[in-house]
Amino acid sequence: MSATAPAAAASTPRTILCMKWGTKYGPEYVNRLYAMVRRHLSGDFRFVCLTDDSKGIRGEVQCLPIPALDLPAGLPERGWTKLATFSKDLHGLRGTALFLDVDVVVTGSLDEFFTRPGEFLIIHDYKRPWRITGNSSVYRFELGAHPDVLEYFRANFGEIRQKFRNEQAYLSDFLHRQGKLQYWPKAWCPSFKYHGIPAWPTNYWRTPEVPHGARIVIFHGECNPPDALAGRRNRRFRFIRPALWVGEHWRE
């Protein structure tokens, strides 16, 4: 396990990495993510989006194709595509990468995400913290340093699919067994669903707020940023007031 923070040499700049595939998220998600990172990360960085459609994405973002995983057609979406970030040679990219889901909202400084010691850092699972599983909305790694994650996946997909529900469960288990898995401080990457919505029945009169100490708020499950901003939830009888703070951060 690494005891020192990764260096960000001038020849291998820090990289913000995201992915956009399919039609669920439009280019505005990538554009707003770039703008939030620019406001909250000091110094130089490279912003890369692995995508199957670069239309509408702002010029500061380097758009590159997603490496093919060659999975069987018709599979349910379980995030397996993210494992392409662990390619041995990801379009020649090198250095330290911070992966961000395109639907997160950045609310605080990102500088320490690059300086915190550790070989591989990820969010600890919110719902079942006694498990090792991480939430892969935010993870940091050295580009090209973990090709075995992808190589083993490609060679054993049938077995992996039976054992793990999604990519983050497989990824966490694989790196945990190598002694490389570590977690971000709990306050840094809270869940809007679990930490940002007031408890019932106060959700009927209290407005959702940014959780204390949050730097990146994660939107997973039933709400994404525009839903939270509008006060919508996609499950019945789960009322929330508009989270107006989202509009202050989730913008270009």
Rank of each mutant, 00 (worst) to 15 (best):
R154L: 13
R154C: 08
S42K: 12
M19H: 04
A9P: 11
D103R: 00
R58D: 07
R39S: 04
Y34K: 00
V102N: 09
R94P: 01
V37A: 09
V104E: 00
A145V: 08
G95R: 02
A199D: 15
C63K: 12
D52M: 07
F237Y: 13
I16F: 09
E209C: 10
N166A: 14
G74H: 08
G26Q: 06
A84G: 15
R116G: 07
G196M: 03
P147A: 12
R161L: 03
R177E: 09
R14F: 08
W200H: 07
P67V: 12
I66E: 09
L181A: 06
T115L: 11
L181P: 11
L98P: 05
A7G: 14
C223I: 12
L75I: 13
F99W: 09
A35D: 01
G196A: 09
P147S: 14
I123P: 05
D103H: 00
G22V: 05
S42D: 08
W130H: 15
L143D: 03
R236C: 08
G247A: 00
C49W: 11
S172C: 05
L181V: 04
L150D: 10
P190N: 10
R32F: 01
Q162T: 14
Y194H: 13
H146F: 14
C223T: 07
K193A: 10
H40W: 03
P225W: 01
P242D: 04
R161Q: 15
E28D: 14
N224C: 09
K24T: 15
R116N: 13
Y152W: 10
V210H: 01
P27S: 01
I66T: 10
P211E: 11
S11G: 05
A9R: 15
A3P: 04
T12G: 06
I66W: 04
F45I: 06
D44G: 14
D148I: 02
I218Q: 06
D111F: 05
F45W: 04
L229H: 11
T15R: 07
A145P: 12
G179I: 07
R116W: 14
V105E: 00
L121V: 14
D70Q: 12
N135T: 15
A230K: 11
P13T: 06
A10C: 03
L17D: 12
C49N: 12
K82W: 04
K186I: 05
V149Q: 04
W205A: 07
P65Q: 15
F192Q: 00
T81W: 09
L93G: 11
G79S: 06
D103S: 00
L244P: 01
D70F: 10
F157Q: 11
L244R: 11
K193Q: 13
M19I: 15
E248H: 02
G158V: 09
F174P: 01
F164V: 05
P67H: 09
R251K: 08
A10N: 03
S54E: 12
F99L: 10
T85G: 02
P76L: 07
L150Q: 09
I16Q: 03
M1R: 15
A35G: 08
R206P: 01
A199Q: 15
L33A: 02
E151Y: 03
G22F: 03
G95A: 06
R154T: 13
L98W: 07
C63H: 11
R233A: 00
Y152Q: 12
K55A: 15
K186G: 02
K24S: 14
R58C: 14
A10T: 08
